[in-house]
Amino acid sequence: MTDITLVEAVNLALMREMERDPEMVVLGQDIGINGGVFRATVGLLEKFGSERVLDTPLAENMIAGAAVGMAAQGLHPVAEIQFMGFIYPTIDQMVSHASRMRNRTRGRITCPMVLRAPYGGGIHAPEHHSESTEAMFAHIPGLRVVIPSSPTRAYGLLLAAIRNPDPVVFLEPKRIYRLMKQAVEDNGEEFPLDTCFVLRPGSDITLVSWGAMLHETQQAAEQLAGEGIDAEVIDLATIKPIDMQTILESVGRTGRCVIVQEAARTCSVSAEIAARLAEEGLMSLFAPIRRVTGYDTVMPMFRLEGHYMPDTARIVQAVKQTMEFA
């Protein structure tokens, strides 16, 4: 067992599952000889050949549509979109077909596909390379949306996504692709989808986040611990469907909640969590729910992205404001 990065864990899971499942293929732009622009698919072509590792023409809508067709035949395609900023042409396929195929044929035809894409800001990438628009997919009935935040969860959740009998959008926080290393056991064991992970138990306040923002959220929790505030940190991990039980149970104990996301605020996943807390957990709240989010602006180009993205200071400040309510 060696220490590996998140992107290496993605690669390990792809490698592992391709070995196990002859019905699995991967497709996308530059995923073959180049191994993907982030090297997530490195080594797959050499190991599994061009029959199963498919460099496609540059057409994202087609990549998604072809994956729908492959999945309809019972293959397990894992399609890579190079950046989330280029994922929008796939939305027609994901909304109109991938998410609906099982329902509109009453189970006769299904769509066990995965659409992978790196997402989020913070790597000083060109325009259109830094968005966090996961809520667009979370709005689509019939899909699952999964976002890992560590190498171990990337490995276990990606295996689960590939093995899931329904379409999964798997968004990889590229800012932390190589931020940390963890010992990941390549045991082929999947993690449960639809379940939050409590990363840090705490009793004073619940912090909910996902993806790269968990890095800042955990830093904030450590800093707050030094100031006598004991924060519980929850990794949402699967943003659709949402495991509200874990969040409600936590907020039931702490009575306070701050939700941290990189995405713009309005109609976002944090809005959904806040609404459900208001519907089902209002009586256990001592303070208003606070959200630390990106602004409702266009994701700025990289000179300003540091101002856009929530940082530890903003999270700490929101927590302190929440703690002021007696």
Binding site: E51, A66, V68, G69, M70
Partner: peptide
């Protein structure tokens, strides 16, 4: 929108 899916289905039968 079904045209690209047809390509995916055709890939699958060829693959098998």
């Amino acid at each position: 929108t079904h045209t690209t899916q047809a390509a995916g289905v055709a890939f699958a039968v060829k693959y098998r």
